[in-house]
Design a protein around this nucleic acid. Sequence first.
DNA 1: CTGTTAGCGCATTCAA
DNA 2: TTGAATGCGCTAACAG
Lengths: 364, 364
Amino acid sequence: MSEVNPGELEGVKNVRLKKTTIHDVAELANVSVTTVSRYLNQRYDAMSEETRHRIAKAITTLNYHPNALARGLKSQKSRTIAVVVVDIRYSFCLSVIRTLSQMYAFTGYSLIVSETNGNPALERQLLEQLLSQQIDALVLQTNGENDAFIQDIARVIPVVVVDRSSNVSGVTNIVTNNFESSYVLTKSLFDQGYHEVLYISESPGRISTRLERLDGYRHGCAESNRSPWIVYVNRGQPTAMRREVQSVLQQVPRALPFAVYTANALLLLDVYPVLRDAGFDIPSQMGLATFDEPDWLELVTPSITHVYQPTEEVGILTANTILNHLEKDTNKQAGKKHVLKSKLVLRDSTRIIADPELFGTSDR
Amino acid sequence: MSEVNPGELEGVKNVRLKKTTIHDVAELANVSVTTVSRYLNQRYDAMSEETRHRIAKAITTLNYHPNALARGLKSQKSRTIAVVVVDIRYSFCLSVIRTLSQMYAFTGYSLIVSETNGNPALERQLLEQLLSQQIDALVLQTNGENDAFIQDIARVIPVVVVDRSSNVSGVTNIVTNNFESSYVLTKSLFDQGYHEVLYISESPGRISTRLERLDGYRHGCAESNRSPWIVYVNRGQPTAMRREVQSVLQQVPRALPFAVYTANALLLLDVYPVLRDAGFDIPSQMGLATFDEPDWLELVTPSITHVYQPTEEVGILTANTILNHLEKDTNKQAGKKHVLKSKLVLRDSTRIIADPELFGTSDR
DNA sequence: CTGTTAGCGCATTCAA
DNA sequence: TTGAATGCGCTAACAG
């Protein structure tokens, strides 16, 4: 049981630190490598207590750490899980990553985190690299265009596609009800008395999340007999983006209250200063609402109405799905689709003062 | 050059997807595995153009991906870099991780991200796990108490300790000038005319960053002939924390303007609502300042004075240090210490209205 | 209860 | 210009 300071020991004996292997342990403990291997895998049942102790001692003495690469090579498992997202700064991504990180902290799995920046080609490249690394599971916020490849991956390891509708067979799909939430938010804005709702989004492309939110918005407009009013911006060029929003706002007739609805909070982060300083009172002249829930929405004045997505739930569900696949080899859940419900959180930025009844329907 | 859909091919031939190995490629290309291996490592010089093409074709046909575990086992390199931080939500950590992620996107290195939650024991466990996984380099925001172990690690792979002073030999240390920044901020608050400065921090323990900020604050107080006024809180218990801050604020004499200075932005995030709603006008009655720079500081009203740390620079320096070690095997930089300079960003939350001259020195 | 042995997939001498 | 053979560190039959 003598505690040995590994630093001193290794430092003195062996500056080059030729790694100690299972053989060294076996030798020192006077057993075979097999027995050591058994010990490492807690197969204590078939082992005398004495050898067990000898091995334990040898291991601490040598400060031995099994080589996971070698283990993985044999077992075809790397005990590594990849999370590939567009941008870690999205509160959605951050929350999912943290939840996974917390849940895997004591399982021995490591989390590889990669960002695609919305680039399908980069996504493809990263996926190939990760496959090479023999990841045991994949959590992916895909940018589309790689479905065939993803399907191949799902044949080999559990794949969970989050935040994007996916019909790829074999993958577990976890999303939120974007269409409905967007619709409800839009409707609520009109119902509050805002005459029009400006929808600011990145160009949807083939990204389901954006398409669904857009559709929800359109549906809300249609139901309220208003024309959609949409501005597509490019988050890659924040300056141009702000300028564009600014110029749009300058054309707004001041007489009637209107609302601005941004399709995600990273957009709002960029344009918020422009909106705030455009000369409209929030919420009486201009309402403000967004998807996603970064911390700051509750901190600014007025606090901002938003759609809260159950990101923790997404993380937990993702983590459990993968753990089930991996540990219990349960393949039942594969291919299942989960649609979690978001929640509309009404805050001060859409508490209009004016009476909704004053305004008839009209279109611009 | 015929494009083959890997999905179809593998799917049809082999549902179980027995992985294709270098042998399969060799066989199909009618060469030895050695030659294929050479091809994989771009040793084209000693290879006829024809075989090269045959191998290339075989690889795409079989949709072959080299097994990085096997490669790593031979080469003793996993092409994997670990980033171990306290909490990804710290803007410091997030920024460093993103910078690393961007810089390594095309290098073939993967980033393993882990959180310690400030727990040294968990940190130790994670480090052991990561070592087992044969990581090629380590970026660590340590919680202390593992220095001997870290020194061992640094003997084997490049280690960069960020955001914590470290004198462990062999590790590269990248920090910001916390003492000085904290001092400058404190001084600036007194100079603005705030009569006292309440310092809210987590208990510093042995964490250099916290100690230095605390010392800087104390030094600032001393220089201005004011007594320190410190509240230690526990971020793990946000409710208790808010209650405590609230009760402290209730005892403040309303006559004189004072300032609140939080030691990091995650703390401020938790207590901001309490501060805002405590009944003091910001900034005329209560000043507000913090370390760190999350996005929202500029968005709230009034905007919040803060210490901006050059997190991108930290990330770039970290990434380059590691790349130099890894690629060029340059061991010169090891053990070097870099102190980057933070910047005080004055905002509206500390633009006091009152005339500083009105207030003499006194202590509570 | 314990040991021998044969690979896992790849890179690398050394020969040819 | 190419190959055969060996081993990286570990696990798992299969023996004893």
